[in-house]
Amino acid sequence: MNSGKVAQEQSNSWNKFVEFINKLGFNPLGLALLIIIAVLPTTTPYFQQEYIVRWMIMGAFLAAQSIAFDFTSGYINIVNFGFAALLGVGAYASGIFANTTPFIAVAPGLNPWITIWLGAIVAGLVGFALGILTLRLRGIFAAVMAWFLGIALMGLVNNWTALTRGPLGMNPRKFLETTNNLPYFYIIFTMMIGIYITLKLVTRSHYGLAFKAIGQNLDAARASGINPIRYLVFNFTLSAFFAGFLGGFYAHYFGSLTPSTLMHTSKTVEILAIAYIGGRGSLWGGIAVAFPFVFLIELLRTNFSDLPGLHLVIYGVLMIVIMIYYPGGLAGFYDWIKSKVQRK
């Protein structure tokens, strides 16, 4: 009898726990997987190897980007084709502030831990402008406008050599003096979780409903009293802010920036593929896809080094097949399984 009570109490606190993490956008399975990812590099020898840690960093970096990307494309249904350029703006801004800090000209500049926020703010402002510009444009026009703006931003970075050194590239200082990658993994992992929780909370609020309404039918949304201007601009700004924030990480982790490796449209396409294979409008789908993906791709790259770009072709084919036959992506598949299980 006593043990029954304990069990009940346990299940009670378990329910409370599930409810709590649910509020933050997790379910027990997802949280468990994330914890496993987080502890792998400290416990398992395979994952302690330097290059594997680098892959893990890449996985978290791509996953975090896909969350910020999906926040726009999966909700208000506008593909932000200038996403990589916004990330680049954040990276350059943060790098420049950290190295030279123009206008106030203090060398060696501000602390990267501060400039990463400044970079995010600069990118957010550009995102704000993009939001305003695309307001009157619909669907595909907005996507193409974002693409053009991205190309223009890349052109700007290429040409503003006094600040960016243009195509030669610049070398922002690193976050840490250490050559060990592991701390960087925890930085980007924390950023990824932070971005996920923030954006999940936003989409769970009335903002999320408004986003979806706007994404499905702008006119109907407007007719039902939603002011699309506010939501569209807010969405673009926030997504761009996080893109710039991640750009700052890139700048102070790699310590090397060139416009074409960072801001090119093909970089946006990579993120787009991850977000869509993960499942649009889920936010979490990209995380689930990014990690295995990086490993798959890196293994392909090392084992078939005589076939350069094989991984990208596979990537693209997978994306096409999923878009034609399984537009819900991984998240859609998960929901389907869940509904099957629940029915039983």
């Binding site: 869509y276 072709v313 878009m323």
Partner: peptide, 28 residues
Amino acid sequence: RRTKKDWIMNAFLLTVGISFVLSNGANL
């Protein structure tokens, strides 16, 4: 054949995928 829902956006994304495959395929 599968769906005409959200056609413009879906078709656009597919062409993005085609572009990605063809240019990387040529590289390969």
